[in-house]
Simulated scan of single mutants.
Amino acid sequence: MNTENLLVDELNVLDRVLKDVVGLNERYVAEFKQIMFRKHLSKKEFLISEGTICNFIGVVISGAMRSFIRAGQTDEFNNDFYFEHDFVSAYTSFLTSQPTNCNIQALTDVNVVYITAEQYQGLLSRDNEWFKLGKYISETFFIRKCKRETSFLKNTAAKRLESVLQLYPGIEQRVSQYHIASYLGIKPESLSRIKLLTYINK
C-alpha cells in the first residue's frame, strides 16, 4: 500500500500501536505498512457481518465501532467496542476459518488499516519476531473476553458499568447510552438509574 494516502496522524497511531504497544522495531513496522490495506467505513456500515468468514486483523485508526450478536429478528446484544489504537477482528472466525456469528458495525465514520489472514500467516512464517504481534493480539482478545464473562458472573450492573468505564475510557462521550446498556445486559432506563444513584452517592 502507498502510505502517502494516509495522513500523518494516522501513521502516528499505527506507529504507536506496533512500536510502543506491541514492541516491533521500525523495520517490521515499515514492512507492515507496505502490505497493509486501508478501509473507510461510514457510520452504520459493517466491517463484517454474521455468516461470513473473517480473514483480516485490523487496527482502528480513527472512529468507534461495536461488535454485536443478533438474537431473533430484532434483538441485538453488544459484546465489544473498538476505538483508536484497538485491534479489530472477528477473532474466533479468523482463527478457525469458520463463519462468524457476530457483526462489527461503525458507530461513527471509521478508518481501519488491516492485513489479511494469508499475509498474517506469511509474516509469522518468515520471522519469529512477528510472534510478538500474534501474542499481543491473542492475549488482548482473550483477556477482554475473560474480563467481560467474569464481570457478568460476579458483579452487579453498577459494578459492570464501573468496569466498562475503566476498560473503555471516555466511552460515555462516544457511545450512546442504548449501546452501553446493551453491552451491560440491562435496559437503558436501568442504566440511567444506576448513573443517578452513583452521582447521588458520591
Rank of each mutant, 00 (worst) to 15 (best):
D75H: 13
D75M: 11
D75P: 04
E76D: 06
F77V: 09
N78L: 01
N78V: 06
N79G: 08
D80L: 07
D80Y: 14
D80S: 11
F81R: 02
F81T: 04
F81H: 02
Y82Q: 03
H85F: 12
H85M: 11
D86S: 04
F87W: 01
F87H: 09
V88Y: 02
A90T: 02
A90D: 02
T92G: 10
F94Q: 05
F94K: 04
S97F: 02
P99Q: 06
N101S: 05
C102Y: 00
I104V: 02
Q105G: 01
L107H: 14
T108R: 03
T108S: 06
V110R: 00
V112E: 03
V113C: 06
V113F: 00
V113P: 00
Y114A: 05
Y114V: 12
I115Y: 06
I115A: 05
I115F: 08
T116I: 14
A117H: 13
E118Q: 15
E118W: 10
Q119F: 03
Y120L: 07
Q121E: 15
Q121P: 00
L123C: 05
L123E: 04
L124I: 14
S125A: 15
S125W: 01
D127G: 11
D127R: 05
D127F: 09
K132R: 08
K132T: 01
L133C: 02
G134N: 03
K135R: 06
Y136H: 10
E139S: 13
T140M: 09
T140N: 10
F141L: 08
F141D: 02
I143N: 14
C146D: 09
R148K: 15
R148Q: 09
E149A: 08
T150W: 11
S151L: 07
F152V: 05
K154S: 14
T156C: 08
A158R: 07
K159I: 09
R160I: 06
R160Q: 05
L161W: 07
L161E: 03
E162W: 09
L165E: 15
L167P: 15
L167R: 12
G170S: 05
I171W: 02
E172G: 02
E172H: 11
R174F: 02
V175S: 00
S176T: 11
H179L: 10
H179N: 14
